[in-house]
Each structure stands twice: as structure tokens, then as C-alpha cells.
């Protein structure tokens, strides 16, 4: 089994109920701590996951979605990749959705752009029936 290419899945949770958002973010924080991230980065990661999984609850409909965490770390780097996928109606205008203050759901419009700022890599693909956010946090390991 090669872990170098895609890493291995370390956590997966279905997002169908508002309490799943709480579970996802607290578990993410725990995992981030276990992988050696500092407390500020643990909070950044957990907060970003909270924002993205909330969108699933708010927009994806009854089908909900799923949130997966992958450990892609090596000796030099700690890399955590997160995938949040849902099968809802999709985001019509992804570019607008990444702008501060843009919301179609009566929200603040701070979630997506906020999460993007907290993470090191951020990608979103959306079409009707599938929206997928992929984001990573990458930190150099401190040896010794």
C-alpha cells in the first residue's frame, strides 16, 4: 500500500444532521493535535471544517454529504487533506460564493471565503448533484 500519493483516510463522517457539524469539527481538532499540529492550527482546521460542513447542512438537502480526512504527512511535512462532498443542487456561481458577503441562504457569506483563508490549499468543484470541496493544511515538521 502506498501512502505517498493519496495518503490514507483517517476519518470519515456523514453530514446529515447539525450535530454532525459539531462532531466533525471536534474530531478534526483531535486528529490535528494527534498529527502534531499546534493549537492555533488545530483551531484553524476545525473552524474551516465547521464552515464547510455547515454549508452541507444548509444547502445539500436531506441527502446530506460526507466529510473525510486524509493524512498525507511524510518525514518533512505534516499534510492533512479534507474532502467535503455533497449531492445537493450545487453552487451556481462558485466564484461569487468565494467572495466575502455573498450568500444565497441568508447567511453572512463568510464561511467559504473564511475557510479558504484558514487553509493552505483550497479547491471547490460544483455542479448540480455534486459539490466537492478539497482543502489541505500543510506545515513543516519541527524536529528535535
Amino acid at each position: 500500500m502506498s501512502e505517498a500519493v493519496t495518503g490514507h483516510s483517517i476519518f470519515s463522517i456523514e453530514i446529515t444532521d447539525p450535530s454532525d457539524v459539531v462532531s466533525a469539527r471536534s474530531k478534526a481538532r483531535e486528529i490535528a493535535a494527534g498529527l502534531g499540529l499546534g493549537s492555533a492550527d488545530q483551531t484553524r482546521l476545525a473552524t474551516a471544517i465547521s464552515e464547510i460542513t455547515r454549508n452541507v447542512i444548509q444547502y445539500a438537502g436531506p441527502g446530506g454529504g460526507v466529510c473525510r480526512l486524509f493524512d498525507e504527512s511524510d518525514n518533512e511535512w505534516i499534510r492533512i487533506r479534507i474532502e467535503v462532498e455533497d449531492w445537493g443542487i450545487g453552487i451556481t456561481d462558485v466564484v461569487a460564493a468565494l467572495r466575502d458577503g455573498y450568500s444565497t441562504g441568508g447567511g453572512l457569506g463568510a464561511g467559504l471565503p473564511g475557510a479558504r483563508r484558514l487553509m493552505d490549499q483550497f479547491d471547490i468543484q460544483s455542479h448540480p448533484g455534486c459539490t466537492k470541496v478539497e482543502m489541505s493544511m500543510i506545515r513543516r515538521r519541527h524536529h528535535g
Partner: peptide
């Protein structure tokens, strides 16, 4: 509170 996201803050 260790996590306060945009919704909770608002």
C-alpha cells in the same frame, strides 16, 4: 470554547 466559527461569532 475552542472553536468559534463565523456562524457562532455572528
Amino acid at each position: 470554547l475552542e472553536i468559534v466559527d463565523s456562524f457562532m461569532a455572528r
